[in-house]
Nucleic acid binder design. Structure first.
Lengths: 221, 221
DNA sequence: GTCTATATGACGATAGAC
DNA sequence: GTCTATCGTCATATAGAC
């Protein structure tokens, strides 16, 4: 069923509200978002916004969903390009992820910390994040089948440890040097060393017995 | 110069304000702290608090200083007890640190994230955090002198990588499972594996040439 | 010196007129 | 769908009681 003019217009307004809200969050921080400021920048009165969002938390929820979709899209796009050793793939993937977070610090705070008292994302808003976790799990499972990850470790543990490391880089970078860009990022600079350490620990040194014959170049050093 | 009755009474009141403020932060989150709520629980009017703190941010600053002092004290206390291999010392130290953070999530948010728009800690409030970093640096330097850390790596890099890992555990634990205690903490459970990985990468396998003859039991496996 | 009384302007949110 | 009017709460400021 096609959307009529009114529905389309409504969706456009909602997008505009979210654009401006994201802009304010980027300037003032997640908790600095104010309904009045959104209305001011849109040239309308605050109560008019309640036609589109029943509460400020509903607005945060929509922003959470949007951020999760954006990062899911960014990661899904480069997933197919991942080649090379375990270490190379880890590094490329984490660089994309952390790079996005550094470029979108406000979204990152909303997605990965809990800065708004009383706000918890709904299941719908969380869905893209779950899909991203699923994608990453599938990727690690494939790496193990291909013999790039040791066969004697649980994928869930490898994934948990890797997310700890990436979220540590993000957390340190955003908290201690929020104004550094991707090139300057002093904690992002730790990533190659950490990826090497991680690959040395969890990477397989030869194709495993379960390899399906399409293993990429494993780190054989 | 001893404090007279008035000054002592004033300091007691300030301590009471901070106690209650920390209590509210623990219940409502960092951003959920309200001056009015503090006054309500103390049985006074909000403006009275401005005798002790010139602004809400000054209050956050005092809380930041207090949290930093608390964690510095917790870490300094157990530092002298650290013995054993590099891996064992890493694990014991990080467990103490992360355990404190899990038990004091509100202080941790204030100390390690940036949840309050417009608030940046003053240099005085930051001082204990700097001292803690200094303590940890000295500890790592000692470990290197004792031959437990490879002689060919910079202590600053080892320290940066280790803080990335510990802050990753804290970040994941507080964001994804804030209600789990220290025993249940599913991300804290990743710590032994991560410490083993880290020690295998940066730990020395034999006492270095620079050992001062008081090396502890190095991991010789 | 310490607190109260009172006021200001911003906030999130609601009701109802048009 | 947007407005005005309004509510209660918030941080904050000032004046003055005791």
């Amino acid at each position: 069923m096609p959307l009529d003019r009114r529905q389309r217009r409504r969706l456009e307004t909602i997008e505009e509200v979210l654009d401006i809200a994201a802009e304010i969050m980027a300037e003032q921080g997640v908790a600095g978002l104010s309904v009045g400021e959104i209305a001011r920048r849109m040239g309308i009165r605050p109560p008019s916004l309640y036609v589109y969002f029943p509460s400020k938390n509903a607005l945060y929820d929509a922003l959470f969903a949007r951020g999760a979709e954006l990062i899911l899209a960014a990661m899904a796009e480069q997933r197919s390009d991942l080649t090379g050793s375990f270490e190379e793939q880890l590094l490329a993937s984490a660089r994309a992820f952390i790079g996005w977070c550094i470029e979108h610090p406000a979204y990152s705070q909303l997605l990965f910390w809990r800065p708004v008292p009383g706000f918890t994302p709904t299941a719908e808003a969380y869905a893209p994040a779950v899909r991203l976790l699923g994608l990453t799990t599938a990727w690690f499972e494939e790496l193990q089948s291909d013999g790039l990850i040791r066969a004697d470790v649980a994928v869930a543990d490898v994934l948990r440890d890797w997310t700890v490391i990436t979220s540590g880089v993000i957390s340190q970078q955003l908290a201690n040097a929020p104004d550094e860009d991707v090139e300057a990022g002093r904690y992002l600079a730790a990533l190659p060393g950490l990826a090497a350490m991680f690959a040395a620990h969890y990477g397989a040194t030869r194709p495993s017995a379960r390899s399906r014959g399409r293993a990429r170049h494993a780190d054989q050093r």
